[in-house]
Every structure is written in C-alpha cells, then in structure tokens.
C-alpha cells in the first residue's frame, strides 16, 4: 500500500479548515499535544501539520487565485528518514506513512532541514519534531464507521479538495483523479518521489467585456472627448 492524498488546487477555497481540523484531531492524537506559544498575545505561534498559502497566477484579467495547502508528502525516498541520526524518523513498509517516534527524537532539526516541503515542525514544549501522521490513529480505527476512516483534513474539507487513498491501486479514487486531471508531485527534481499529488487548477474561461454599440451622437461625443483629452 502507498497511502497518500490528492489535493485539488482547482477547488480549494483556502478556508484553512483542514489545518484547524488537523490540529484539533492530532493535538490529542498519538503525537500530541501540538503546543502553541502566545496563543492569545501579540505573536501567536505553534505547531501545525498543514499550512495553506495563497498564490495569484497570471495577470488581470487572466488571473486566478490558487490556494495551496501543504502537508507531509509521505515521500517514497524520504530524505528526512535518511538523515535522522536517532532512528526516530521512519517510513512504514506496510503503507508508506512517514512517522516520528516521539520517545526517540532528540530535536536536532536536521530532518526539518532535509524536507523541501516544510512539513516538519519542532514542538518547543516537548522538544521533539512533529509531522503529519496521515491520521494513522484514525484510518485504521475499526470502532469508527468505515466512511470516517479517513484523515481529519479530508473529512472536514468543505469543497472536497482533498482525497485520500492508496496510490498502489490503479483503480482507487486517488489514482484515477491523478490520471484524469494530470496530477503531479511537488519539486520532483529533488528526487524524493512525493506520494501526495496536486491537481492543477483548470484554466478558467476569460470573462469577455462586450462593448455596447452606441448611436451616432454617442460616437461623435466619444470622438470629441478623445480629441480633447489628447
């Protein structure tokens, strides 16, 4: 199995619900708590497994806002695991999820330096590195109804921009989506083989601005105005 996410850049509305719901689930999960510093003061900061940034592509009137959620890509060749000196970072053979053993981590930051996606963050309170677990404490929980055995971010996304599944299965929803919509991983040139795939935004139709035809008097007025303005 190669579990991962498909993120649809076309439908993401940038509401940050995935980031919040992720924090809510994981702060009481296996790698919790996700500590905050100065949460109600001037410079609030804290650990998040999901970060959403917004970009603008193209120039007006052919521009578009693209909201860009990023979490751990569960790389096939995860450099964060290779550089870890303690063996706290590991990749599970059974489903490809990259995890950190909180009892072994010494907080040297090297894995965060090795990650190009910024998906590892140091928890100042515990002194250990933390990252997306793909809700490993949820997707296998048989006490939950089957439809709920998905990562928290996927469950909560109001625009269904996030999909969870097995990339090794060519008929899974994620494999199909990636195939149909030309999904691709981020920064493939680094050679880490990220599992998570991003579906590019669809090209929007240009909004044409029709010029209303004016009568002869109007045309003369326009011509006169243009002449004066010169």
């Amino acid at each position: 199995m190669r579990l991962g996410l498909v993120i649809d850049l076309d439908t993401c509305v940038g509401c940050h619900a995935c980031a919040i719901s992720c924090k809510e689930w994981n702060t009481s999960g296996t790698t919790g708590s996700l500590s905050d510093q100065n949460p109600y003061e001037k410079d609030p900061t804290g650990v998040f497994f999901n970060r959403v940034r917004s970009y603008e592509i193209g120039d007006y009137p052919h521009n578009k806002t693209v909201n860009f959620p990023m979490s751990c890509m569960q790389c096939e060749d995860a450099a964060c695991v290779t550089v870890c000196p303690t063996g706290a970072s590991y990749k599970r053979k059974s489903d490809g999820i990259v995890l950190i053993d909180q009892d072994k981590c010494m907080g040297c930051n090297l894995c965060a330096w090795a990650c190009p996606y910024g998906s590892r963050e140091l928890d100042r309170e515990s002194g250990t590195m933390k990252k997306c677990t793909l809700c490993v404490d949820r997707i296998y929980d048989e006490s939950l109804p089957e439809i709920d055995r998905q990562p928290s971010c996927v469950m909560t996304c109001p625009s269904s921009a996030r999909h969870f599944g097995d990339f090794d299965d060519p008929n899974s929803n994620v494999s199909k989506l990636t195939r149909e919509r030309n999904g691709d991983g981020l920064m493939n040139e680094l050679g880490y083989n990220p599992t998570n795939q991003y579906l590019p935004p669809r090209l929007a139709n240009n909004i044409t601005i029709e010029k209303k035809k004016k009568n002869i008097v109007g045309q003369v007025k326009d011509w006169a105005n243009e002449l004066i303005s010169r």
Partner: peptide, 22 residues
C-alpha cells in the same frame, strides 16, 4: 516549487498572522 509553471506566479498571502517555525 508550486508546479504552476505555465503562467506568472506570485505570493498573495502566507496564511500566517506571525512568524511560524519555518
């Protein structure tokens, strides 16, 4: 980095109200 290579790309908003770990 974003894979949005066909057109001009610029950052609109980091999504943060203050500095994070990264």
């Amino acid at each position: 980095a974003t894979g949005l290579s066909s057109r001009k790309v610029r950052l609109l908003h980091t999504g943060e109200s203050s500095k994070n770990f990264l």
